[in-house]
């Protein structure tokens, strides 16, 4: 579980987050949704400690990320896997070397054990046999899946994903969503996904927070999304007239 308490963040005079309180639950896919510029990425970066909030706390279990010492932060980060929007795979390394990097850095496993673990992670994301390929030889969807494989290689307790579906076609997006969802369930991890993809919201949104102009505008789950009275959420979901028409017809 990750608990955000009163997160306030500004850049210069621009207030990005104005007191966000939210609990990201264990074993569930927690979604941060909102329009571009609503503060989703900033909140996610605060959750992993890349940005420090002006005020507020981020609790990983009993550890406060904001006030943690460098050593505590290092230990905590070894329990966190993150998938970046652009995958952030190291270009000069092969897929195998990319996934093996955290193992090389932090474990004393033998070479065989590391390769076995890499192969397991690749199998988990349905990419067996691409060990020796370079990231530039992979499609966007494959890069994302390799990014997920690298994020889970150290068996993290927390998985954070920054726009995992951006730039992907709808079918690949669904594959990525299903993969993240199944990893969350299988390993009982706390997953936080930053997205503005409505498919993701409706498919895997078990615990959703909607950000609007730096405030928490709504929280709920995918079943509550369509039956609500929140105007901001309505505007966000039915931004596409096509979807609105579809829902009206269904009704």
């Amino acid at each position: 579980m990750i608990r955000a308490e009163g997160i306030y963040k500004r850049f210069g005079d621009h207030e990005v987050l104005k007191g966000i309180d939210f609990v990201f639950e264990q074993g569930k896919t927690n979604l941060i949704i909102g329009k571009s510029g609503s503060g989703k990425t900033v909140l996610l970066k605060i959750l992993v400690g890349l940005f420090k909030p002006e005020s507020g706390h981020v609790w990983y279990g009993d550890t406060n990320l904001v006030t943690a010492s460098k050593e505590e932060l290092r230990k905590l980060r070894m329990q966190v896997g993150m998938l970046f929007q652009g995958s952030a795979l190291f270009d000069s390394m092969t897929v195998e070397q990319n996934i093996k990097f955290p193992l090389d850095m932090f474990t004393k496993q033998t070479h065989k054990e590391k390769i076995d673990r890499v192969n397991y992670c690749l199998e988990r994301v349905s990419l067996e046999g691409i060990n020796k390929k370079f990231p530039s030889e992979l499609s966007g969807g494959m890069q994302k899946r390799v990014g997920i494989a690298r994020a889970i290689v150290l068996n993290p307790k927390y998985l954070l994903c920054d726009e995992p579906n951006s730039g992907l076609d709808p079918q690949t997006s669904i594959t990525i969503d299903e993969l993240i969802s199944s990893l969350t369930k299988d390993h009982n991890i706390t997953t936080v996904i930053n997205t503005h993809d409505m498919n993701s919201v409706m498919e895997i949104g078990e615990n959703i927070c909607l950000l609007h102009q730096g405030h928490l505008a709504w929280k709920g789950n995918k079943d509550q999304v369509l039956n609500h009275s929140n105007e901001i959420l309505h505007d966000f979901i039915f931004a596409s007239p096509f979807l609105q028409k579809l829902i009206d017809n269904k009704k």
Binding site: G49, L50, K75, G86, A88, F106
Partner: peptide
């Protein structure tokens, strides 16, 4: 390319 951020998050 966020490689540095990725390494930071790994610890």
């Amino acid at each position: 390319k966020e490689h540095i951020d990725a390494m930071e998050i790994m610890g």
